[in-house]
């Protein structure tokens, strides 16, 4: 396997972005949406997630390690490109560029987000409605959250589109066109869920 390392790493990068990281994002956004139903229901959902059996094992193997690999290899990929949207201002070339920009934004956002929530929780702070409400009380933090959420949903939706090509699922131009529409729908739906959830804390 040593010879075709790059092919293997690239394919893993594409796969892990969708399974499990993409699925994790959907679950995470879904649970967050409890915030729109009020404090009590949100705290109950958080409590349920916190007390899942095998929580640490699942966190490590389904969340932390795949994201870590995807992020580190993603930085390498992002900085390998020389962008040329000035001369080639086509839709897909812009998406190519945004995919790399959003990836870096998500990485920075995530580092901050994990620091403020997961690491704070590990230090003994209680995770509940008030924790998030305190964070987004600051309008700068709220804007940062919205930018982070939209970057995440874009990166996931557009990544889903290229996942279809990378694995040879959407080969014909027609199927790639339809997949553009479908992933646009995924982007809009997830963005709505994410932004509505964060605004519920305000």
């Amino acid at each position: 396997m040593a010879q075709n390392r790059e092919y293997f790493l690239r394919k893993m990068h594409s796969l892990l972005g969708v399974i499990p990281v993409g699925l994790f994002i959907i679950v995470h956004f879904g649970v967050n949406y409890f915030s729109t139903r009020g404090e009590a229901e949100y705290n109950q959902a958080v409590n349920f997630m916190e007390n899942l059996p095998f929580r640490y094992t699942m966190e490590i193997f389904i969340i932390f390690l795949p994201i870590l690999f995807h992020a580190i290899y993603g930085i390498y990929i992002a900085f390998q490109a020389r962008h040329n949207t000035n001369n080639f201002s086509y839709f897909r070339n812009w998406m190519f560029r945004f995919q790399r920009i959003s990836g870096i934004i998500v990485l920075i956002f995530m580092a901050w987000h994990v620091w403020e929530t997961r690491i704070a929780a590990a230090m003994g702070q209680e995770v509940n409605f008030d924790m998030m409400a305190n964070i987004v009380e600051n309008p700068v933090a709220l804007i940062a959250y919205i930018i982070g959420i939209v970057s995440t949903t874009f990166h996931f939706a557009n990544g889903l589109w290229s996942f279809g090509i990378t694995w040879g699922i959407t080969v014909s131009p027609r199927s790639q066109q339809i997949s553009t529409y479908v992933t646009l729908g995924v982007f809009l739906a997830l963005t709505y869920v994410g932004v509505a959830s964060i605004l519920a804390f305000v």
Binding site: E6, K11, R92, N93, M95, Q99, S162
Partner: peptide, 15 residues
């Protein structure tokens, strides 16, 4: 699939 710079380096910019 072998070595660096193969098929998987495509980033789908479709230029």
């Amino acid at each position: 699939m072998d070595g660096d710079g193969g098929l998987s380096n495509c980033g789908n910019s479709q230029n």
